[in-house]
């Protein structure tokens, strides 16, 4: 299975990364090299095997559903590229 240039554009769009036309061909070659490399996984018999999602050898812990933090708006906003009062500011979304 090989990615077309249109597929590369679609992936870039999904990933929210702006890609120039000149970069598409390079990415297409590189991504196809990686996908070609992982193709060998198709030869493994995985019938009846449960997928392993994580490295932890334990069940997820639960905790009480209570507030453990808060009242730190200044700290949270300190790194904002743009803010307005206690809000993150972004370009206008709705006209």
């Amino acid at each position: 299975m090989s990615l077309t240039s249109e597929a590369v554009r679609r992936i870039a769009k999904l990933a929210r990364i702006r890609v120039d036309d000149a970069e598409i061909a390079v990415l297409q070659t590189e991504l196809n090299a990686i996908l070609g490399y992982v193709e060998q996984l198709n030869e493994v018999d995985v019938e009846g095997v449960e997928p392993l999602s994580g490295g932890a050898q334990m069940a997820m812990r639960l905790r009480e559903d209570v507030v453990t933090d808060g009242e730190i708006a200044e700290q949270i906003l300190a790194n904002a590229p743009d803010r307005s009062g206690n809000f993150f500011a972004v370009p206008k979304v709705v006209e």
Partner: peptide, 27 residues
């Protein structure tokens, strides 16, 4: 590159063929 590969293997229609299969072989 890695974000794009990851986006692709998780995208609709390719998840089972790539990501789920990889998780099974991880097991």
């Amino acid at each position: 590159r890695r974000i794009m590969i990851g986006t692709y293997v998780l995208s609709a229609g390719y998840y089972d063929a790539y990501y789920l299969r990889a998780q099974k072989i991880r097991a």
